[in-house]
Computed example of a mutant assay.
Amino acid sequence: MRLTNWTDYSLRVLMYCAACAQRDQPATISEIAEAHGISRSHLTKIVMTLSGMGLLETTRGRGGGLRLLKPAKDIVLGDVVRQTETDFTQVECFDAEHNSCRLDGYCRLKGALQQAMASYLQVLDGVTLADLVAPMAQPQGARLGQPMRVVPGLPRLALL
Rank of each mutant, 00 (worst) to 15 (best):
L3W: 11
T4E: 09
T4K: 11
N5Y: 09
W6L: 11
Y9P: 01
S10M: 02
S10G: 15
S10V: 01
L11D: 02
Y16A: 07
A18W: 00
C20A: 15
D24F: 11
P26R: 00
T28H: 12
E31Q: 15
I32R: 01
I32H: 02
A33T: 05
E34S: 09
A35P: 00
A35I: 02
I38H: 04
S39P: 03
H42D: 06
H42N: 06
H42C: 05
T44H: 10
I46A: 02
V47N: 02
M48Y: 05
L50A: 07
G52R: 06
M53K: 13
G54N: 11
L55S: 03
L56C: 07
T59M: 12
G61H: 12
R62V: 14
G63L: 04
G64R: 12
G64P: 11
R67G: 02
L69E: 15
P71E: 15
P71R: 14
V76M: 13
V76L: 13
V76D: 13
L77Y: 06
G78V: 10
V81D: 01
V81P: 00
R82I: 04
R82F: 03
T84V: 09
T86R: 10
T86A: 09
D87C: 13
D87E: 08
D87K: 10
F88I: 02
T89I: 13
D95C: 10
S100Q: 14
C101S: 12
C101E: 03
L103S: 12
G105H: 02
Y106R: 14
L109Y: 08
K110L: 15
K110I: 10
K110M: 12
K110G: 00
A112M: 14
Q114G: 14
Q115D: 14
M117P: 00
A118E: 15
A118S: 15
Y120L: 06
L121R: 00
V123H: 09
L124T: 00
V127L: 12
V127R: 00
L129C: 06
A130V: 03
A130G: 04
L132F: 03
L132D: 01
L132S: 02
A134T: 14
A134W: 14
P135M: 07
P135K: 10
A137L: 15
Q138L: 15
Q140G: 08
G141T: 01
G141Q: 04
L144Y: 12
G145N: 06
G145V: 03
Q146Y: 05
P147V: 08
M148Y: 04
V151Y: 08
P152G: 03
G153W: 01
G153Q: 01
L154N: 02
R156W: 03
L157V: 06
L157I: 10
L157K: 06
L159H: 04
L159Q: 05
